[in-house]
Design a protein around this nucleic acid. Structure first.
Lengths: 242, 242
DNA sequence: CGTCAGGTTGAGGATGATCAACGAATGTGG
DNA sequence: CCACATTCGTTGATCATCCTCAACCTGACG
């Protein structure tokens, strides 16, 4: 049987002991199933736990008073859901499901115990939460300094790399229910414009997004166009962790 | 004497014991002074430590091949510099000083020891690094869904709140060497446009940015304009931390 | 058969970029 | 003390990217 996704993720940061693996496996219980297009975390409410995402994809977003929406990131299996939304007095963002998902609640109390009982795991959690900031940084570069066309190309490639790392994508393609509205809200653009950019990518033979299938047809050209460098997604073993 | 900034920051997340305070104080040695406009971390190089920012202001940024720059965030006293840039095989971003600064290096090895020796501090570091993601989220909303005018207003207010929390600002004003080029690169805009927006804010009597002085003249109107809600900057005591 | 979610397309317009100059303040070397 | 360079701010003209609005299409589903 495949290892639990959290185990898989942390394994890229340190060599886990048997005890640690057992403990992490234990965190994947109990589970709760949630259908597609449901809100898991609602901005403004108070929470006392996080969730470990066991399977499926979720997204964190913020809706402005005038109705505009910005999607802030995607959560994949092994990610902690509720960071940072739930860490405040009242949730500062919302989180919804993009697909059907399975998650395991983890109370803040349990999280605190983790740091005492398994300091190495605590260090690893710190490290990988810190690494997430690199993805936010790249997303900021997208929105601030890349054209619509470049953003779309970059998104396709980042998702390919992340999904591949999670074992959820093929060499050059993946399946994900990305509506154009969703992509627009990820990239800070309008739906009609996203539509045109997708067509453009298709006509140039670089990539296609159809139905729920994303296919990269020309990796080199797409990477060059997007200025994609995947260092920021590559994990490093934590130095100095005994 | 004022407490070290890291102690001050972590105090808002948990009640520190004497031992913990002593340990944190020890982290502020040795110190290294760096002048304004120097690079602390250079993208592409390899690093084996982080830095604790003891005083001054730094910024993390990325420069694209065509020379465009995006500033990703500001580091204030008490922040760890090098997150996430240094956590990769090779630094994924650069960090430079906005003012003269003082910093203390902290090797990765020492960081790992912290988690073992002071698990509560480890949990607190995790928590506050996770909370940083809320700031990235708000920055993403800025770049993705707010107009130039709103972005500028939001930036002014966020900086006011953050600097006040660090004891570095007055009720409605602060001193910071923000050039228009720098603000443009923070907000994903061009220098001439920033110039016009600043003038606009001034003419509307909302705020001024002159020399190195930022003054908010009409907090209520500016907040309404920016859609500024400061929950995401307010720390919560970590629940369940014994 | 009607509704709804999602996709597609076009016309017109606004926001903000680019390019180019000029001004003011500061500092440097001769 | 002056010539000059440099940094930073300011302004205008022009232009491109991308938004808004509006319509229409398709397939799925009750």
């Amino acid at each position: 049987m495949a290892p639990f996704p959290l185990v898989q993720k942390l394994s890229s940061y340190l060599a886990l002991t048997t005890d640690e693996v057992a403990y992490l496996n234990g965190l994947h219980e109990p589970t709760r199933k949630v259908q597609r297009h449901r809100e898991i975390i609602i901005a403004g409410r108070r929470y006392d736990c996080l969730y470990i995402l066991c399977s499926g994809v979720v997204f964190r977003y913020k809706v402005l008073p005038d109705g505009k929406r910005q999607v802030l990131n995607l959560g994949l299996p092994g990610d902690f859901i509720g960071i940072p939304a739930c860490l405040f007095d009242v949730a500062v963002n919302s989180v919804s499901t993009l697909t059907d998902v399975v998650l395991s609640p983890m109370s803040f109390e349990k999280l605190s115990c983790l740091f005492t009982q398994f300091p190495r795991l605590g260090a690893a959690l710190f490290w990988c939460t810190a690494c997430d900031a690199a993805m936010y940084g790249e997303h900021l570069v997208d929105l601030g300094r890349r054209s619509a066309y470049e953003r779309l190309a970059h998104l396709i490639l980042e998702l390919l790399a992340r999904l591949r790392a999670a074992g959820l994508a093929d060499e050059l393609s993946y399946t994900l229910p990305l509506t154009q509205e969703f992509v627009a809200d990820l990239l800070g653009l309008s739906v009609p414009h996203i539509n045109r950019m997708i067509r453009c990518l298709r006509e140039e033979g670089l990539a296609t997004i159809e139905d729920q299938h994303v296919v990269v047809h020309d990796l080199a050209s797409l990477s060059a166009l997007a200025g994609f460098e995947e260092h920021y997604l590559k994990h490093r073993l934590i130095p100095g962790l005994l």
